[in-house]
């Protein structure tokens, strides 16, 4: 990187960096609460915060289109589906004593080890790498549309087929249970 020498160090952050770190901390905190809270619906709502935080990070990285997709799909649909699922499986109000399974310790150990390894490797590798976010936006709708429908058309179409298959699959799964237990609707 020819700009490697020109960029400021870690001790003199730019405004974008400060915002990024702040939002990142909030996101991470929301994620941690989401995976540790004993209230199931709260977990899903904290997940909304975490996903929204990631959307903001996308905006900060000038990937605007992806940020809105993130909001539309994740916050608007995925989390709603998750909440649906939680409510249909009778998530209680208040704390569930058995929200966590028996291998919390092992999970914690593995997660901490993975985090340590990844952070170490990433920091070691990208200590002095600089992203230039001040130039032209990298993820405007025009740019994204052009690359998506010019270079990535075939994967895009394949994905549409996958979505269709998932749609059909979900319908089939739901229909089967209603046929097996007709009294339950």
């Amino acid at each position: 990187m020819n700009v490697a020498a020109a960029h400021p160090g870690f001790l003199s952050p730019t405004g974008v960096e400060i915002v990024f770190v702040l939002v990142g901390v909030a996101t991470l905190a929301a994620a941690v609460v989401s995976v540790t809270t004993k209230q199931l619906v709260h977990a899903a709502l904290w997940l909304v915060v975490a996903l929204g935080g990631v959307a903001v990070e996308y905006l900060l990285l000038t990937a605007e289109f992806i940020a809105w997709v993130q909001v539309l799909i994740y916050v608007g649909s995925v989390v709603v589906l998750v909440l649906f699922g939680l409510m249909l499986t009778k998530a209680p109000i208040g704390r569930s004593p058995d929200a966590d399974s028996g291998n919390r310790i092992a999970a914690l150990a593995v997660a901490v080890a993975a985090a340590g390894t990844l952070v170490w490797v990433v920091v070691d590798a990208f200590r002095s790498t600089w992203i230039d976010v001040d130039g032209a936006p990298q993820g405007s709708t025009k740019v994204t549309g052009e690359i998506l429908f010019r270079h990535w058309v075939l994967p895009f179409e394949a994905l549409s087929v996958l979505l269709l298959a998932a749609l059909v699959g979900a319908i089939v799964l739901s229909r089967k249970q209603s046929r097996q237990q007709p009294g339950e609707r």
Binding site: V21, G24, F126, T129, W130
Partner: peptide, 10 residues
Amino acid sequence: MHLAYPAVLA
């Protein structure tokens, strides 16, 4: 922006 920030966050 340093690449390390998003990478570590990820």
